[in-house]
């Protein structure tokens, strides 16, 4: 009897290899005294700028978590961005409004924002009923609700970090109409073009996940990105070698990956 399922052996081996490389770089980063320096992601830096701008204009900072739940990676990444934004907003004494459509996210988001304000200089600013806005888990019902919320509250800056579909363009335009500084973080190829046209800063694709490590400020997590890059170089090398071998009519690598 096979221990590994047929057709998944090669993927299993590659996953183990990737796991080993990333874990090793995590270990190296932990031992390292100096933190690894990464290039600045403009979108991440713009979150503070957005909070500052909102504060100057006396408007709230809005975060759109969209209908992403915690069962998907994007929803969890969105919570990382929320934690960072809430902390920065609480430190600056800026009002924050969080829109969400997944019921299970409501208590988590509330806890994140409450913790941020409780550790900030103005804990009395926290107001769950106003700051935590559950809209709807239904795609276009959420969109309508978000349009209303942006129209009423007129935030000074908006961070869009949930995963969405066709409504991405409407969500982006809503912020444009109230002259808000907009930062979007998207991993979906179908959302990125829409956000590029309507937002001031876009955290694109891989940056979406890397950003979550960057906002943590934890050198161990940043070390993980080095492992991720090393694995990416190996993957690209595999693609190039595979392309050359297939062009030459050699099927060994293709057959090996089918095991």
């Amino acid at each position: 009897m096979d221990i590994v399922k047929t057709g998944k052996v090669s993927i299993f081996v590659l996953c183990i290899l990737c796991f080993a490389i990333i874990t090793f770089t995590l270990y190296l980063a932990k031992r390292r005294k100096e933190p690894i320096k990464l290039r600045t992601i403009a979108g991440i830096a713009a979150i503070e700028e957005g909070i500052g701008s909102s504060l100057e204009r006396g408007k709230p900072f809005a975060v759109d978590l969209h209908t992403s739940g915690v069962t998907g990676v994007d929803g969890v990444v969105a919570l990382s961005y929320l934690a960072y934004s809430a902390k920065k907003a609480a430190l600056a004494g800026c009002d924050i409004i969080v829109g969400m459509g997944a019921p299970e996210v409501v208590p988590i988001a509330e806890d994140i924002v409450r913790t941020a304000y409780a550790t900030g200089p103005k804990p009395e600013m926290f107001n769950a009923a106003r700051m935590i806005q559950f809209i709807s888990p239904v795609q276009f019902a959420y969109t309508g609700g978000w349009l209303g919320l942006v129209g009423r509250e007129k935030p000074g800056a908006i961070l869009i970090c949930g995963s969405m579909g066709a409504e991405a363009m409407i969500i982006g335009e809503a912020g444009m109409m109230v002259n808000a500084l907009q930062i979007a973080s998207a991993s979906s190829i179908t959302n990125i073009p829409f956000f590029i046209t309507s937002c001031d800063y876009v955290i694109i694709a891989e940056e979406h996940y890397v950003g979550a490590a960057v906002v943590s400020g934890d050198k161990t997590q940043i070390g993980c990105i080095v492992g991720q890059d090393a694995w990416k170089i190996l993957t690209i090398a595999l693609i190039v070698i595979g392309s050359i071998m297939t062009t030459l009519g050699l099927k060994e690598l293709t057959n090996l990956l089918k095991i």
């Binding site: 990382s80 913790t115 991993s187 996940y209 997590q221 993957t235």
Partner: peptide, 27 residues
């Protein structure tokens, strides 16, 4: 994106990624 998801999931499973639990550094 695939690599990003893999690494992020790994960070969560290893317990190093805790920003989603409101444990945020200076960024």
């Amino acid at each position: 994106v695939g690599l990003g998801v893999f690494a992020y999931t790994l960070r969560i499973l290893l317990g190093t990624e805790r920003t989603w639990l409101a444990e945020v550094g200076e960024g």
